[in-house]
Amino acid sequence: MTDSTIETIGIQNTANEPEPSDSLKAFGEAHKAFRRRAGHTQEEYAPLVGYQPSTVASIDQGRRFPQRRFVDQAEEILDAFGVLKGVYKHATREKGLASWFRQWAELEEVAISLYTFENRLVPGLLQTEEYARTLFRERVPVLTDSEIEAQVTARLARQSLLGERPNTSFSFIVEEHVLRRPTGGEEAMREQIEHLLEATEPRNVEFQVVPMSRGYHPGLNGPMQLLETPENEWFAYLEGQESSQFIVKPQTISVLHMRYAKLRSQALTPEDSRSLLERMRGA
């Protein structure tokens, strides 16, 4: 793989994927210059920092936000005089404009805390196969059968996180109306409720419901996800119909934390939420 390699990363709205932010382009150019000064190709350099050549290429292009561990290793290996750390500080103060989801999914795999609020549908990590299949089958524009299978397979594969990361703190807050919408039919939704009860049994998984009686809450602007890395960095992900944002700006993440904390206080307790699910399952 050469320096001209560009890693293609996309989600459903790849056609609307924005250009990389100027700050990430600046970091990428600086990193590439120091790497070349050290005489390393991307293929030679990748194992030194513990990443794939495609990831190095993506960072060089300014299309991927580097984790702090990458920056620290690059700084030491390339003897960059503190330049990379300095540029990185500015990059973390801007919104990541990338619309791809794969970057977020990679962070999910190492997160020590993962918070999710949803007011549209059951969070992907908690969906049954039938629930997920219904969402993809009814998508507009229509997906082919093979595309549906690929999407369902990928979504179910991500759910292994719940079982494989017992030390990760998972928090889910969901609007009650999401659970009362018969997505896929009454029987499919009863199966989904049963799955929620099973999936949220572990001590590290917290599930709360925002009751419909709550007239107003700070999550009305839409769903949000927050995660904490092993380096205690926080990132956020906001998803819309035709655009998504990967957030790294500390001020924005602070606001989202405040909203999530307020939602936690206004939602039913985990115990009461579980009781509600049991009543819904019975009904």
Rank of each mutant, 00 (worst) to 15 (best):
H90A: 14
V142P: 12
V140P: 03
R102I: 14
T128S: 01
R63I: 06
R69S: 12
A91T: 14
D79P: 07
V87A: 11
S113I: 02
Q73Y: 06
S58W: 00
Q73V: 12
K32T: 04
V87E: 13
D79A: 15
A111P: 03
H31E: 14
T55S: 10
R102F: 05
E29Y: 11
I59R: 08
E109F: 04
E138D: 13
D145W: 04
Y115M: 06
Y88G: 06
G62D: 05
F101H: 12
Y131D: 09
G124M: 02
R35T: 08
R63D: 11
V140G: 04
A105G: 07
I59N: 06
F27H: 14
L126T: 01
A98E: 15
F136L: 03
G86R: 14
Y115F: 02
L107A: 07
I148L: 04
E118V: 01
P47K: 01
Q103N: 07
S146T: 03
T41C: 08
T144W: 05
G96M: 07
E149P: 00
R69L: 11
V56I: 12
A33G: 03
D79E: 15
L126W: 01
S58C: 10
D72W: 05
R35A: 15
A132E: 08
F81L: 11
R139L: 13
T144C: 00
R64E: 09
A132N: 04
A38H: 02
E138S: 09
V56D: 09
I59L: 10
A91Y: 01
T55F: 02
V87I: 15
V122T: 11
A91M: 12
V56A: 01
G124D: 09
E130P: 06
N119Q: 05
A80N: 14
S113G: 01
Q127T: 00
Q73G: 15
A46T: 02
H90K: 13
K25I: 15
E147D: 10
L97M: 13
S58Q: 00
R139I: 11
L78Y: 05
T116V: 10
Q67C: 07
I112E: 10
N119Y: 00
E138F: 00
R36Y: 01
S58I: 02
S54W: 06
E43T: 04
E44D: 11
F136R: 01
L143T: 03
E138M: 06
L84G: 13
P53R: 03
R120V: 05
V49T: 05
G50L: 02
N119P: 00
V71M: 12
Y131R: 05
I77K: 14
G96E: 09
R36W: 03
Q61D: 12
V142C: 07
G124R: 03
